[in-house]
């Protein structure tokens, strides 16, 4: 069902990875992505993988969860690898009818697959180990300097927090409404495309109505608690950075430089 979606879900824990300052985690994830995309050969690509493996072990999450997070991108991976295999020039390895499978094609598509998987796993690790609220808090603080040029950092963070907060609620609500309409004999998963589109009406209308109701209630509740924007607002949990955060960041930068060295050294298979 809809509830099985794990992307963007947070799994509470007390591991080192969970405890690292969220701002650092965001930066480290960015460094990780730079590593992935600056690696130009397989040996350089191993570096971010090793880095991820260390972080993953330290997070004490189950491998099953990671694999589950891959599910939604399987079609993307298949399509990109097929395109890469067949449409890159090089020395032909296997020939099927008019389609050439080349050495370069295999090389590049393998590269792409690893990159994509590592990208998803890396960013999933960030969201699995950081609660959405902390994540937006961190973003808000990182964007704060931009407030000088009238960038609405607080408003943006608040909107993100609210949106993230309501994703599970809306999923649950959708599930409930779907069940209720199914109980009245609505057919959602069969019929022609126009029929299916029409079958969505009994779900979308109640969902819209309840979203507006929720928004109104939330606005009222926020006003009752004297919310008046970001100015002068203090945090219950302030983000504190310490030694382990700098250590983790240094480690990621170290790995990044290794990638650069391997890229320059042209050590390749």
């Amino acid at each position: 069902m809809l509830k099985d979606i794990t992307i963007g879900q947070y799994f509470p824990g007390t591991s080192v990875v969970h405890r690292i300052d969220a701002r650092f985690k965001i930066v480290i994830t960015a460094v990780f992505i730079v590593m992935l995309f600056s690696a130009s050969n397989y040996s350089a690509l191993c570096v971010p993988l090793v880095f991820f493996a260390i972080a993953f072990m330290a997070s004490k999450l189950s491998a099953k969860l990671m694999i589950k997070s891959m599910k939604p991108i399987v079609p993307v991976i298949i399509i990109t690898s097929i395109l890469n295999i067949f449409f890159i020039d090089g020395v032909s390895v296997i020939k099927i009818w008019k389609l050439n499978i080349t050495d370069n094609g295999l090389y590049t598509s393998g590269f792409m697959i690893i990159r994509l998987i590592a990208l998803i796993c890396g960013s999933s690790l960030l969201t699995y180990t950081t609660s959405p609220i902390t994540l937006t808090d961190a973003l808000e603080q990182m964007l704060k300097p931009l407030a000088k040029i009238k960038f609405p950092a607080h408003e943006l963070a608040m909107m993100m927090t609210i949106a993230l907060r309501f994703i599970p609620t809306l999923i649950e609500e959708t599930d409930k409404i779907m069940q209720a309409q199914k109980a009245r004999g609505a057919e959602l998963d069969s019929g022609s495309i126009p029929q299916r589109a029409k079958a969505l009406v009994p779900i979308l209308i109640p969902l819209f109505v309840s979203s507006f109701r929720r928004a109104e209630e939330l606005a009222l509740a926020m006003e009752c608690r004297c919310y008046n924007g970001g100015e002068g607002r203090t945090k219950l949990k302030t983000l504190v950075s310490g030694g382990k955060d700098y250590a983790a960041l240094s480690l990621s930068i170290f790995f990044l430089s290794v990638v650069f060295i391997l890229d320059l050294g042209k050590v390749s298979f």
Binding site: Q181, P202, P206, V209
Partner: peptide, 12 residues
């Protein structure tokens, strides 16, 4: 026939 909790939210 099943009437859910707060069934008024399914009206459309």
């Amino acid at each position: 026939g099943l009437v859910f909790q707060y069934p008024e939210y399914q009206i459309f």
